[in-house]
Design a binder for these strands. Sequence first.
DNA 1: TTCAACCTTAACCTTGCGGCAAGGTCAAGC
DNA 2: GCTTGACCTTGCCGCAAGGTTAAGGTTGAA
Lengths: 130, 130
Amino acid sequence: MNIGQAAAQSGLSRKMIRYYENYGLLPAALRSDNGYRHYNDNDLRRLRFIHRARELGFSLEEVARLLALWQDKDRASAEVKKLAQAHIGELERRIAELQQLKSSLQELTRCCHGDERPDCPILDALAETP
Amino acid sequence: MNIGQAAAQSGLSRKMIRYYENYGLLPAALRSDNGYRHYNDNDLRRLRFIHRARELGFSLEEVARLLALWQDKDRASAEVKKLAQAHIGELERRIAELQQLKSSLQELTRCCHGDERPDCPILDALAETP
DNA sequence: TTCAACCTTAACCTTGCGGCAAGGTCAAGC
DNA sequence: GCTTGACCTTGCCGCAAGGTTAAGGTTGAA
């Protein structure tokens, strides 16, 4: 199967497949005589694995580690769990940060009457002298 | 005051100040005979404004709009409020997305015994055939 | 034959800077 | 007068994670 088919069946774009190959997540694809990459079912499983891991927000580096664990039939599931938990922690940090921003902004907009008049506590807060 | 001073007093880095000037958030700074940029109190207020807006997560494009509204003494506060609310909406979208990822991952890790054995529902879920 | 739908590589665009290079300037200390 | 170090200048490369476009080769069907 060519790259377009592989893309359609894995949920990745052609571009992403080539990018991941270049990045090192995938072994160099086999080529037909015309130079086209082709993929078998095994490749496809790998592509889908990557797609799902990316959907869960893992970085490419984390995906690489997950792939290695996946291939290692002697892995300890504890290692995978640890990786996932670290990622959950990272997500929590980012959520907390965004929520902090959000409540600051909500507090400001709550105070802004939001009509035709120019005085605005949002701008005042931004302009505030330290 | 030179750029280093302005950076220290505004909370931005020298690099950011030059970048913002180039980007158009700042007018071209006046130069001394030696070519060094220099800044007055008015410039400093603008730099601090930018710094605070960035801390609240506004993009450079949004900061540009906020600066324009700030300078416009006839603005309607409604416009500022609208911008802020749009940004809150964007933050909410991102938070919801991250939380979705987090709960999916938590569900998976909850099911993973996380010991020496290699079988792991996290990897299984990623490898699942569609 | 010609057209569309594939495929190829390469290179540039994004956001928001950090880092580094290579060099000019300035003040202090010897 | 010399050096040292802190500051300043411009400019280019790099990051994630691709999207987009260019310029061209291949294939199959009408």
